Amino acid sequence: MKIIDAHSHLWLKQDTEWNGKPIKTLKNGRSNFLGEEVQMVPPFMIDGVNSAEVFISNMDYAQVSAAVVTQEFIDGIQNDYLAGVERRYPHRFFVCGMCNYFAPGFCDEAERLIANGFKAIKIPAHRLLLDSGRIMMNTPEMMRMFGIMQEKGIILSVDLADGDMQVGEMKEIIQEYPDLKIAVGHFGMVTTKGWQEQIKLARNKNVMIESGGITWLFNSEFYPFRGAVRAIKESIGLVGADKLMWGSDYPRTITAITYKMSYDFVLKTGELTDDEKAAFLGLNAEKFYGFEGLEIPRYVKNMSE
């Protein structure tokens, strides 16, 4: 089965801030995250470097053909690094550019990213809710950016705040720009009240849902994440199996589980059909992001088998 990861992250070093608080790489995979020491990546990443090469090794081991690399403000803007990643590994990665939406002029920045070859723009919209106030996604500059993206065929990758908090803004964007391709992340913040309203956005023709972070959201029940399977099944009932894509949220999620476990629970469940699994795990993302010529990494037996 061809498997594509629709939500992952890469960075060389975390050295940024969000909402006035620091995020900085420490050691042994840990980071200062908003004033708290956390295990940001697995402890074997002792220098905190979350590189494309380590990810490819994980992808090959788990037989994942390709990955979409999104961005997050808590990692710092990674445009320069990701542009190089896609140049070096064009058949393995589809990367998203990201702008500084906290300052005027980001629409011009988005145009420069598009001119430099980025085929998607990321908005971590849940991070637009600051202590100092909320940045709306339907401001004139935002809407102008979406218009340019629609015209040029650029994908919008967006993570929304809990439940239906930002669904109204998204509906306005979709209505104004019906041909803008949109991928909504974190599976609608499933486990929060009103998450189904985010899923229902995929009833619009160019909107998809991806499951990056779903194992984090169901971390309390752990593998085999039966609640996550039930949520996927419910979402198929809401929007259809052809509107959903698997995403891992690598590498943060693999502090608790292996990379393969982040999709293995879908493969092994009896609650989904083989066709639903194939669509969710790869076929939908292959079509939506335009991957071509993908190969399935060969299986290598574990020494312990």
Rank of each mutant, 00 (worst) to 15 (best):
R87K: 15
P42R: 05
M136A: 13
Y81T: 00
D108Y: 01
Q63A: 11
L129Y: 04
A120E: 05
Q78H: 14
A115M: 13
F106K: 08
M45D: 06
E86R: 15
M137V: 11
V69F: 01
E86I: 06
F94A: 13
C96F: 09
M142G: 06
A52R: 02
R87S: 12
L82H: 09
A62W: 10
C96K: 02
L129E: 13
M145Q: 06
A66T: 10
E86K: 13
P42E: 02
G84K: 09
F94D: 02
P124A: 13
V41K: 02
Q39I: 01
P90R: 07
S57H: 15
K119W: 08
R127P: 00
Q78N: 15
R144D: 15
F55G: 05
D108L: 01
A103P: 00
F118R: 02
Q39W: 01
I123L: 01
V38I: 14
Q78K: 13
G105N: 12
I46P: 00
P124G: 03
L130F: 00
E37F: 01
G117Y: 04
C99V: 09
V49A: 15
V68C: 11
V68K: 00
G97H: 05
Y61W: 13
A125C: 07
P43Y: 11
L128P: 03
S57K: 15
C99Y: 12
D80L: 14
P124C: 09
E37R: 00
N79A: 09
A66E: 07
F93T: 09
F94M: 12
I56S: 05
F102R: 07
S132D: 15
T70I: 13
F118Y: 04
F102S: 09
R134D: 12
T139V: 09
N100H: 11
F73M: 15
L130D: 00
